[in-house]
Design a protein around this nucleic acid. Structure first.
Lengths: 113, 113
DNA sequence: CGTGAGGTACGATGCAAGACGTACCTGAAG
DNA sequence: CTTCAGGTACGTCTTGCATCGTACCTCACG
């Protein structure tokens, strides 16, 4: 079903270790959360995430997320589109996106229960 | 004083990064999966996991899992009990244990449409 | 008290990962 | 073609982490 994605996106085989390792980084988690919070699967630009790191490092993070099967990277030459693989994630890892978005909503609560 | 001290175990404040980093390791994931597969919250001994690492490394892994709020370590002096914090996990991270156990069951499927 | 198994603490080591600098590529705008 | 912004590739530095070695602690057993 990965119609648009040829061979570079077939990271649907990534194991849990790869996914957790990708999501262990706060910057990468921020990307996924913003993507998931959008609700739509439309493409985002890299700048829309405001990551406080250099361009090279951003490229690295997006690569890790792609290899973990969490996002698609649509290459337009001198521009790039980032798209959440929501369907695949919900199929292989149901509840994962809920965990991520819930964490962000709960940030700062501090109150037990 | 590692006994019933609650302060050291209140890792319910551990953020998602700590949890994902803990679960990124295969050995630690194995521990949680075996604990979750048991169904009961009874204590397990460290030897029941058959981790292919030295004792010191096992101590390290259990420490990481404890600091991530995933397990309790009951200290009996010269022996230790490991107990899954199922209730807290399901409350703060609902679906997480399902992700872990599903991965183990799904291993080897690889049936991509 | 001595012995032994289980566990921990501290240090060292080897490897993976995050971050950046430099250089280069790609496409749009002039 | 030149310029410029966005992206990438490679090398490097630094940090973090998994692992083990050595030494020490704790309790049960005799």
């Amino acid at each position: 079903m990965t119609g648009s994605g040829p061979a570079e996106d077939d990271a649907g085989n990534a194991d849990l270790g790869t996914v957790f390792r990708a999501l262990a980084d706060e910057h990468r988690r921020t990307v996924i959360v913003k993507l998931a919070a959008d609700g739509s699967d439309r493409e985002h630009t890299c700048n829309s995430f405001d990551l406080p790191v250099s361009k090279q490092t951003q490229t690295h993070h997006f690569r890790v997320l792609r290899e973990a099967g969490l996002i698609h990277e649509i290459n337009y030459g001198n521009r790039k589109g980032i798209r959440l693989r929501r369907a695949e994630i919900n199929r292989r890892l149901p509840g994962l996106l809920d965990l991520l978005t819930a964490e962000r909503r709960d940030t700062g609560t501090g109150g037990s229960a």
